[in-house]
């Protein structure tokens, strides 16, 4: 696991620095180095138009193979169901480490992503493989528990062996303008993570506008997120290209302003290989190819992996494949 720089920022009620009008006086986060962060306004139509251009990039032959391999290696292979069992998790881990037994040349996925109760099973089946264990925690997916409960949830998952923690922000607090609360809760959960990496889910489908998503992105990064993540997958609106672009632009802005590097995880509704490489193009053309590694980019998904495998089989055999030729786990 690559060690990313640890951050601890601060949030001030009123900034004397020049900030843009969209960054209202009550929202003026500062990075650890004390830089007053500018939050750039976002135009919905222009953002969505730019996001569409990535989907018109045509990826063929050698590019396609590279894109599929990269997409696989960036997956957080996920199961987040009430009916999850250690058996289900074991199957998932096997798939994560060796996605296609018939094709040992393929990379493993980046991590498996499970509920806290499933962490021990996941650790059992991935130890020594290099595949990380990510746990959603902190009263996922609503975040509607006391801080004590959320912190304890995280500490338990880390103690059980999770080395990545995915939490959600309190959308209610954010939408009511209580940015200090959101900042503080992220900071506290970051502390609870200890050595584990923190991914902060903004649950963009509940934030209402791209301006809010951009603002929440800056807030989460200032408060210590190692990754910012789009969605829980548990609400109607999941990740989308414009949402990912909006967050990627915030990450680039944050890096420009502070020199600190934060990763992006897109999650929810990403089921096809085509969708996956649209995201890769988006990252490459917005943040640069240095972000195209599992250390800085993740795709939270479950059925996506099989579609990627079908595409690989098509490249290898020249024939269109079918679902009977990949394992359903």
């Amino acid at each position: 696991m690559v060690t990313l720089p640890r951050r601890a920022g601060r949030l001030e009620e009123v900034s004397t620095e020049v900030v843009t009008p969209a960054a209202s006086a009550v929202f003026a986060p500062r990075s650890r180095s004390g830089v007053a962060l500018r939050v750039t306004p976002v135009d919905e139509v222009g953002l969505e138009a730019r996001a569409r251009t990535f989907t018109t990039r045509s990826i063929k032959t050698t590019s396609k193979r590279a894109a599929i391999n990269l997409a696989i290696s960036c997956i957080d292979l996920t199961t987040l169901e009430g009916m999850d069992t250690p058996g289900k998790v074991a199957a998932l881990c096997r798939k994560a480490v060796r996605p296609d037994p018939a094709n040992p040349g393929l990379p493993s996925v980046a991590a498996v992503c499970v509920y806290p109760q499933m962490v021990p099973a996941a650790v059992l089946h991935t130890t020594g493989t290099g595949v990380h264990v990510a746990s959603v925690a902190g009263a996922f997916p609503s975040g509607q528990s006391s801080m004590a409960v959320r912190v304890a949830d995280i500490e338990q998952a880390v103690a059980d062996g999770a080395d990545e923690i995915d939490i959600v922000i309190s959308r209610g607090a954010f939408l009511s303008g209580d940015y200090r609360y959101v900042f503080n809760e992220i900071e506290a959960q970051k502390v609870a993570c200890g050595p584990a990496h923190l991914k902060v889910i903004l649950e963009t489908g509940e934030l209402g506008s791209y301006d809010q998503i951009r603002k929440a992105s800056m807030l989460a990064m200032a408060a210590g997120a190692d990754f910012i993540k789009t969605s829980t997958g548990k609400v109607a609106q999941n990740s989308s290209m414009p949402v990912a672009l909006c967050m990627a632009e915030a990450i680039r802005d944050y890096a420009d302003q502070t020199g600190e590097i934060v990763g992006l995880k897109v999650a929810g509704g990403i089921r096809t290989a085509k969708q996956a490489w649209h995201y890769l193009v988006l990252i490459a053309e917005t943040l640069g190819t240095q972000w195209l590694t599992p250390d800085l980019f993740r795709i939270g998904a479950s059925s996506l992996l099989n579609d990627l495998l079908l595409q690989i089989q098509k490249l290898d055999t020249g024939r269109y494949s079918g679902p009977n030729y990949v394992s359903v786990d």
Binding site: N69, S73, C93, R94, V97, G105, L106, P107, H125, G130
Partner: peptide, 9 residues
């Protein structure tokens, strides 16, 4: 379990 193909990641 065989180790993951980390070289590719």
């Amino acid at each position: 379990i065989e180790p993951a193909n980390l070289s590719l990641t």
